[in-house]
């Protein structure tokens, strides 16, 4: 009997939780705020689902109920992607080391 592809996805999911667990514990506490903003940005990779949804209309009508929800989701996710990555970059640029020679 063939293995359901769902099992493979589940394996990826479970293993990623463990990867996340170890990676996040190694994040230095002083960078916990950038951690939150960058996780925000990357979880907006949900935009791939939104794009599929947005393109679900046919050539005669781009807009139907389903694709409109897709387009809205694209805009929301895009706010997060750009906002999340840029604000993280802005924060990280502020973390400076002590100047050794004064």
């Amino acid at each position: 009997m063939e293995i359901d592809p769902l099992i493979f996805r589940l394996s990826i999911f479970i293993l990623s939780i463990f990867v996340g667990y170890y990676v996040v514990w190694s994040v230095t506490p002083s960078l916990h705020t950038p951690l939150m903003s960058v996780t925000n940005a990357i979880s907006s990779v949900i935009i791939v689902g939104a794009i599929i949804a947005g393109l679900s209309g046919n050539s005669d009508s781009v807009f139907n109920t389903s694709s409109i929800f897709g387009f809205l989701a694209i805009a929301l996710a895009a706010i997060n992607i750009f906002g999340g990555f840029l604000v993280t970059q802005r924060m990280l640029a502020m973390y400076k080391k002590k100047k050794k020679d004064k």
């Binding site: 999911f13 939780i17 979880s43």
Partner: peptide, 20 residues
């Protein structure tokens, strides 16, 4: 949603962010 769309990137990210 990642499971629904069968999308690995979304599943990995979801798990990372969830555990984070």
């Amino acid at each position: 949603i990642g499971f629904t769309l069968e999308n690995t990137a979304l599943i990995i990210t979801g798990a990372l962010v969830g555990s984070s």
